[in-house]
């Protein structure tokens, strides 16, 4: 069984190497091993494995990482709008576009 992989070339993850201090925090928090250390700075090794959870950007003290993070339809659980939410979620995503 291969590793589960989602769509290619779509992720919004960006690493601005000039700001990177090599603190390794991104490597620590990433749940999919997207980053590796190249010399003294982080490097994106497996971009398509990124799920845009935003942990790296949130924990980058140097502000060297940007990603449009989001959790999709999980908001329905937070807001407790269970009823009819799937349809609403579809239309929201479709209507708003990217």
């Amino acid at each position: 069984m291969g590793k589960l992989a989602y769509l290619r070339n779509i992720v919004t993850l960006e690493l601005h190497a000039d700001k990177c201090t090599g603190c390794r925090m991104c490597m620590e928090v990433c749940p999919h091993g997207v980053f590796v250390l190249a010399g003294k700075k982080a490097k994106i090794d497996d971009r398509d494995a990124c799920m845009e959870c935003g942990a790296c950007a949130r924990n980058c003290a140097a502000g060297a990482i940007s990603v449009r993070a989001g959790v999709g339809c999980a908001s329905k659980f937070i807001h407790g709008q269970e009823h009819g939410t799937v349809a609403r979620c579809f239309f929201r995503i479709w209507g708003y576009g990217v």
Partner: peptide, 10 residues
């Protein structure tokens, strides 16, 4: 546990 929001949109 592995899908990105951008991918889901697309």
């Amino acid at each position: 546990t592995y899908t990105s929001l951008s991918g889901v949109f697309k």
